[in-house]
Design a protein around this nucleic acid. Structure first.
Lengths: 141, 141
DNA sequence: GGTCTTTTTAGACTACGTCCAATTATCGGC
DNA sequence: GCCGATAATTGGACGTAGTCTAAAAAGACC
């Protein structure tokens, strides 16, 4: 149920982002740029294969990387199945250093989130703020 | 450089949490309950093996699971290497459904985080709130 | 049409995690 | 202390997600 105009529009979108629109890339874009899911890379591969059986896994991974570099996608690192352990069991927030990937704890009181209780339709069990950035000064003189 | 009293203290801590303190569990606890790192399960295994060469991977994974169930550890799902893609590139927050694992977007304006700019020693690139819980009502009559 | 660059491909390889059946350790009662 | 029941541990098979590479295919340009 693909429309030629859809593909044309997608190709334009890729070009606008500075990406050459190959057939594979258009097929991948057709799924990943419009879905409300938050698919993993392999899920994208599985999905795209149904339309485009000959696409290789490497292509899908490379293409998602490319889209991300050009600002068409964001990578989230909060999915299930990828777990680290923290002996500090009280609620607290987290800081992730862009340079090293290290995770540090931020005390609960250092931040405050307003309006969590106003969220409609959900029972909140817990929440945390994830801050990403770089440690300042310290090392570089 | 292990102190007998340390091990004794750890064993007590496990018992207090309702866990039978086997030698392997004490060794695992000795690392994971006191570290400031946020190790992955495999990192814990690598580490514990240096003290306790015969421990099997299954034991470490089971034990971490057990500690988590008994409240000695928390699992964080925000580490690198575990990525999902989101075509919505503007800043927004995320809701993770405990029941299904599905990730939903929360509009940026629905929450507000106070004091992010007060964090000392870091240059913040981005941040988001991760809310976990359950969707209410809707489906069940 | 030829050539130079970009893209894609298949498959080997690694890392991480799960599962299971068999073995070993531990506990409580005698 | 010994014994049977229960709990814990083991190693290895298995599965899945992801990376890497060398070679083939496609596309751009003259």
């Amino acid at each position: 149920m693909k429309q030629r105009s859809d593909e044309h529009h997608l190709a334009e979108q890729l070009e606008k982002a500075g990406i050459r629109p190959s057939a594979q890339r258009v097929a991948i874009a057709g799924y990943v740029l419009s879905t409300a899911d938050h698919p993993s890379a392999d899920e994208v591969w599985q999905r795209v294969k149904t339309d485009f059986p000959m696409v290789s896994r490497a292509t899908v991974y490379n293409t998602l990387q490319l889209f991300t570099e050009h600002g068409l996608l964001r990578q989230l690192v909060l999915a299930e199945g990828c777990v680290v352990f923290d002996p500090k069991v009280e609620p607290h927030h987290h800081f992730v250093d862009d340079a090293t990937g290290a995770i540090e704890d931020i005390p609960w009181a250092a931040l405050r989130v307003a309006k969590v209780d106003d969220l409609e339709g959900v029972d909140v069990r817990e929440y945390m703020v994830v801050v990403r950035g770089r440690r300042r000064g310290k090392k570089a003189p």
